[in-house]
Simulated scan of single mutants.
Amino acid sequence: MDYLLRMTHIVEEGGPWERCLQLLHLLKNCGHLPSLPIIITPDDVRQVGTKMVFDSQPPAMRQLSLFRSRADDVGFPSIFSKRIKSRDRQALTEAFNRFLTPDMLPGDLPAVHTSDPPVIYDRYGATSSSDIAASFTDMCLYAIFTDIAGIHGFVEPDEIMTRTAQQQLMERLGQLTSRMDPTWSGSRLAYVWMGRFPEWGWCNTNVVVCGDKATDEFAALVHVDVFHLFHQPSQTCDLWIVTTEPRVPRQRSSAQRCPRTAALIRAKVDAMEAESLVARRCAY
């Protein structure tokens, strides 16, 4: 009975579950969850912690606390814990110095979502390397990007699109980053600033191209670094593409080894170029 009461409280007080569901699909397509749906066990409920701890966290953290142990490697911390070198739920929670509210952020940043607020966390456990994620979920998405890159490596952009298209893509993502748009052409965007001051430093911007929907069979993300120097216009560089798409053997180019990822990226680029063409025509 206690298990059922606690489970009811978790479901009712967990807040909006849409972002958590997207995260679970992404974890499954990265190989960190064996399958979906997940059967919640009493052990899952116990590792959430006390009601007081659960209620004190923003909804996004409450939801992940129910599933985080499922993303653990055997004998090792989860991909989220590895990012900040904490090996248990309490250490992971304590690693976040504080949740940021609107009065703590620079005035030019958009409104904060209280259900999934920006967080400061200590990268690798070092206070000198503290980062700001635009939301708790954004931090999780960045951890997933680094995990895919470490396991599967990078897809070479030169083998998928032209240099001109790459430059246009980076410029577009730089513009989206300056506005902190939540999505781009239906794809989720995630922002993590390396260093505590978003107005001075660089932002890791990640685009979830696929993997966060029930119909997706693999995950693919695009990553760029957006630099802000002394309040000058943003500079965007370092375009990276990662994917968990199974590689086609005995193929030389990235486009041939990962044909579905290449097709998705090219579709994004084609749509972007079409939008730019329409905008130029409307300007005349």
Rank of each mutant, 00 (worst) to 15 (best):
V74S: 15
I84Q: 03
M161D: 08
D212H: 07
A165G: 07
I148N: 10
Y3M: 06
R250H: 09
S69W: 15
E18C: 00
R46C: 12
E245H: 05
I40P: 13
A126D: 14
F76L: 13
W202K: 07
E18W: 07
D212Q: 05
C237P: 02
E18L: 02
D108A: 02
C203P: 04
D147S: 05
D138G: 07
T93W: 11
A219W: 14
R250W: 10
A267R: 08
I38F: 11
G201R: 05
R19N: 03
K51C: 09
L23I: 01
Y142G: 03
S56R: 10
L169S: 06
Q167G: 06
D88W: 14
F227I: 04
Q57I: 01
V207E: 00
I144A: 11
V222W: 08
A263N: 13
W200Q: 06
F76H: 14
Q251N: 06
H9S: 00
H152F: 14
R250C: 02
I241M: 12
Q256C: 08
R123L: 15
E13Y: 06
H223E: 12
R6T: 02
I84T: 04
F99A: 01
W240S: 10
R70W: 15
D131E: 14
S187K: 04
Q235R: 07
D225G: 03
R46L: 13
T127M: 12
M170L: 08
P233K: 01
E199C: 00
V209R: 02
L23V: 00
S178C: 05
G107P: 10
T137C: 09
V209D: 01
G174P: 09
V74Q: 15
V207C: 05
C140D: 03
G15Q: 03
L277K: 07
H25K: 00
G174M: 02
R46S: 12
K268P: 01
T183W: 11
F154Y: 15
R250I: 01
C237E: 11
V224G: 03
A279D: 09
P34K: 15
R280Y: 09
Q47V: 03
G125P: 12
L33A: 13
F96D: 05
S276F: 09
P259E: 12
P157F: 15
A262T: 03
L169M: 12
S187G: 01
I241K: 11
Q168I: 12
